[in-house]
């Protein structure tokens, strides 16, 4: 069966964004895992280091457009970010000196 045009376009875009088809080195971490890594780490720091609101941090993190969404556990001081394909990153706040660190 011949894939429909949107499917081809989508596949092409993913390949392009994944760095396939150029002569550059492609790193191991998949696209969406990079997205959750960025989203969770910087959300955690924005909220617990800079002490900004979740809304402010969401806006500061926002990219064009977002691929990842974060949830904050204020009691545990952790941020979990998820994206398509099961990508997930968990970042935890340590203290005022060391800020946030990726734990999963």
């Amino acid at each position: 069966m011949i894939p429909k045009l949107p499917t081809l376009a989508l596949a092409g875009l993913v390949l392009g964004l994944s760095g396939c088809g150029n002569d550059l080195r492609t790193y191991e971490t998949p696209l969406f895992r990079l997205g959750t890594g960025y989203n969770a780490k910087e959300a955690c720091s924005c909220i617990f280091v800079s002490e900004r609101t979740e809304e402010d941090c969401q806006e500061w993190l926002r990219v064009s457009p977002d691929v990842a969404r974060f949830k904050v556990d204020h009691e545990a001081k952790t941020v979990t970010s998820k994206a398509l394909g099961g990508a997930k990153t968990v970042v935890a706040y340590v203290d005022e000196r060391e800020g946030c660190i990726m734990v999963d």
Partner: peptide, 10 residues
């Protein structure tokens, strides 16, 4: 979907 896949994270 296409938009959702365009990464521009900082």
């Amino acid at each position: 979907l296409l938009l959702a896949l365009v990464p521009a994270w900082a």
